[in-house]
Amino acid sequence: MKLIQFSYFLLLFFSVTGQEKKIIPQFVSSTSIEANEYIDSDVFGFHYYIKNNVFYKQKGGELFQYKNLYLGKISKVDSQNPLKIVLFYEGFNTVVTLDNQLSESQIISFSKNSTTIVASAIGLASQNRLWVFNSLTMQLSLFDLLKLTHQPLAQPFQKTFQYYQADFNQFYWIEDTQLVYSCDVYGKVFSLGKVPAFTSIQFLSEKEVIYQWENKLYYYNLKEDKSTLIELDKKTFQSFRFKDQFLIIFTDNEISTYQIRLP
């Protein structure tokens, strides 16, 4: 009898400990939205998105928009600073900065720069500068928005990258081999490890990412080489964004906000 009881508890132990650990977000709210691409939300409660190549900023009945018919498709939006939003029009090698009401502050054509720049990646850096990757020289640089000069950083890249992301102090990129690197504003390059295959991804820090793969969402720790499933109540979703312990999921016509606690 004791042997049977022991076997039962042993089986129960392994069935519990063998279960895959999951992160279960707590639903907070949802907002209807008509957009082609969701960009981000800020601390003031505004949502940023693109519809028909027009950039929008919206909260309730407040709505701002910016469109530029002469610069083609919006390739990238950097909304880290709500007072200086950066739009990148890669087809025209041009960056536009906007204020908090989406009025133009500055238009920069890299084609007119004294040193030839063919930009294929941009991001807002600290001290009124932009991260700019020059695909002509395969080199990352910092571009001064006031002086209109650029300072090359580190050595030219040896391989192309499939994804990049920038914050004020770091520029992250993922090579086609899934290897991950970062460069700081002083030009120091760091090797951060390797990430799993993904369809979309967001860096949270030098050692943490959230990524989407096959319509599932995962938290991944680069140091531990470990993925944890984030269990969503959405069967399909278009994109996601994580900020300040909140996870935002964008479907075709809705933004859903969840509170989430990461390991």
Results as ranks from 00 to 15, higher is better:
Q151F: 14
M138L: 11
D252Y: 10
K188R: 13
Q101Y: 12
T17A: 11
K226W: 02
Y56T: 09
T115G: 06
A119F: 08
Y181A: 10
K112C: 01
L247I: 08
D40I: 04
S120A: 11
G45V: 10
E206V: 07
A197V: 08
L71I: 06
Q58Y: 05
Y163H: 14
F143W: 09
I230K: 08
G61E: 14
F203A: 09
F133E: 01
I260C: 05
K226L: 14
T177K: 12
F46N: 11
S182Q: 12
K73A: 12
T137F: 07
F13G: 05
K234R: 08
S109H: 14
Y164K: 07
F92C: 03
F242S: 05
G61R: 11
A154E: 05
K159S: 11
Q26L: 14
Q158H: 08
P25F: 10
T236S: 13
N128V: 01
Q162W: 02
N68E: 15
V77I: 15
S30I: 03
Y49M: 00
S205N: 09
G45D: 04
I230S: 03
F46K: 02
T97Q: 01
A119P: 07
F246Y: 10
F242E: 04
V195Y: 01
K223S: 14
Y181Q: 09
I230A: 03
D167A: 07
S75H: 13
I249G: 04
F110I: 03
T97C: 00
N253L: 04
F250Y: 13
Q155T: 13
T94V: 10
F14Y: 13
N134G: 06
G193R: 03
Y218E: 08
L3G: 00
I210L: 12
V185Q: 08
G123D: 05
V118S: 08
G91T: 12
Q202D: 05
I108H: 00
Y70M: 09
S205T: 13
V209G: 02
L192N: 12
S114W: 03
F88P: 04
F237P: 02
D233A: 07
I255K: 06
T251Y: 12
I210D: 10
Q127P: 00
L217Q: 04
S126H: 10
N215H: 08
E37C: 01
L232P: 06
Q65M: 13
V189E: 05
I230F: 07
T160N: 15
Y66I: 08
S205W: 09
D99I: 04
D78A: 04
Y49N: 00
V195T: 14
K21E: 14
V28Y: 08
Y8D: 03
W131M: 07
M1V: 03
L124S: 13
L148S: 11
N68W: 02
Q259R: 13
F198L: 07
S75Q: 14
Y220H: 12
I210Q: 07
Q58E: 14
S111G: 12
L71P: 04
N68D: 15
G193P: 03
K57H: 11
E208Q: 15
I117G: 06
T228M: 10
I108R: 00
H150R: 12
S227G: 08
F242W: 11
S79G: 07
K234D: 12
F246C: 12
I74G: 01
L222H: 04
F27A: 04
L102V: 07
M1A: 10
N221A: 09
D144I: 00
Q212E: 13
N81Q: 07
S79E: 09
F13L: 14
T149H: 06
F171M: 05
Q165I: 02
T31W: 02
